[in-house]
């Protein structure tokens, strides 16, 4: 990376994934688990987007270069990861909506929001 923000996006990716995973592993509230999943999604999407911004001649089909912005080095932004990220966002919306719908219905039937009580199926 030869941008002003340097490696910061990668650290953000790791932080988002870690916080999301922490929430899913520790928090008992089902809505919070859905939030954790959304955070992990954001981490994965940011990772893909960050990968798109690359330098060197290894990659083809550049959409945008920093030279246009007055930069000196040829940095490319690849279109593919953007397409991947869009797809992944759409999938994320679907899973989050479905999960929230399930949690809502489970609450309607059994009046539970905690994973400790959300276990009629076990053993």
């Amino acid at each position: 990376m030869t941008t002003a923000i340097g490696e910061l996006p990668y650290f953000t990716v790791v932080a988002l994934l870690a916080i999301g995973l922490y929430i899913i592993l520790v928090k008992k509230n089902l809505i919070k688990i859905a939030m954790g999943i959304t955070l992990m999604e954001a981490g994965a999407n940011l990772f893909l987007i960050t990968l798109a911004f690359n330098s060197g001649d290894r990659l083809s089909a550049p959409v945008f270069t920093s030279q246009i912005l007055g930069g000196t080095e040829a940095t490319y932004s690849l279109p593919t990861p953007h397409a991947l990220t869009l797809t992944s966002i759409v999938i994320g919306v679907a899973t989050t909506a479905l999960l929230l719908a399930f949690v809502m219905q489970a609450y309607k039937k059994h009046k539970v929001t905690s994973t400790d009580e959300f276990r009629r199926l076990r053993g």
Binding site: I33, I37, I91, T95, L99, F102, V103, A106, K109
Partner: peptide, 20 residues
């Protein structure tokens, strides 16, 4: 069946985390 939502939610949480 309320249990159906529970089973589906668990499977979905599991497979979504795995998918990510």
């Amino acid at each position: 069946r309320g249990e159906a939502f529970e089973g589906a939610a668990k499977y979905l949480i599991y497979s979504t985390v795995a998918g990510l």
